[in-house]
Design a protein around this nucleic acid. Sequence first.
DNA 1: TGGGTTATTATGGGATACCATGGGATTTGA
DNA 2: TCAAATCCCATGGTATCCCATAATAACCCA
Lengths: 155, 155
Amino acid sequence: MAGFVSHFTNRLDAKGRVSIPAPFRSVLVRDGFEGLYCIASPHCAAVDAGGNDLLAEINKRSEAFAKLSPDHDALAIALFGASENLRIDGDGRMTISDTIRDHTGITDQVTFVGMNYKFQIWEPEKFREFRAEAQRRALAMLSEQRSASSQGEPV
Amino acid sequence: MAGFVSHFTNRLDAKGRVSIPAPFRSVLVRDGFEGLYCIASPHCAAVDAGGNDLLAEINKRSEAFAKLSPDHDALAIALFGASENLRIDGDGRMTISDTIRDHTGITDQVTFVGMNYKFQIWEPEKFREFRAEAQRRALAMLSEQRSASSQGEPV
DNA sequence: TGGGTTATTATGGGATACCATGGGATTTGA
DNA sequence: TCAAATCCCATGGTATCCCATAATAACCCA
């Protein structure tokens, strides 16, 4: 199934609302999740967002440990305590909560980045930096692969 | 289905009451439990709270030991002796008992932390400290999971 | 192909409902 | 009988609903 692809930047209004890109909305409708499941990424200044697919992924992670154990508690606090179940209004908008603001540095604009089974929410400038860095790393990895394969097996 | 998610901090009033976050209340309604089941966490300065889902987990724990055995009795006392069945008033508030005060150090504010099948009740400052530690542990646990699984998915 | 028409989308703002909180009044229980 | 718990109502702030509008994209028919 086609998931979240491409990226969009929309403006926040005076009430802290922002339109979720229409293509993303139709994916969410197909997914069937009521609202929008959001979780602060532990790796970067972005928020992961999605529906049942994302939630299933998170549940899978936490189910690896027995409930009521210290390990499970720690993981549950890091995962579910950092999550939010946002609502989408009749016009396809979400409200950026203070939690998301703090974690992303969003002020007046939001960049939505499709990542197939989920999408990410970024402060536009931070996303540009992150993408530049990611591309730099990807290039380095590729050239490393190429030099390794030149003296050995094909990739 | 999404359970208790996100975290909220509310004020205690002069009578020792505090509003249970509305999203948590609607989860409790779905769960069908009358009131709020509370039990002091053995791992940390927090109180576990929830409905039938939490109660089921605790029962599962104690049933792992044969009934009438000394182990079972000890566990039953530890689990059920330390628990309370609080009631929720018409406005969705609970009263913080002295037992909970002693165990958590709560004075004038309460942080509610969603953990899917249950939520925890914390003194706000203690929660911040614990969460920082929990995030470190969770990151380590998650990266271990990912390297263990044959093909890691992108996060 | 092209020009006009209709849908869709992002954004703005007013009105309303909900929620956290405070406090008085009433009941319960020791 | 007194204190504590419970019920009930009031209120300010916030989030949600609903409708309007401009810009863009899709469509249709000649």
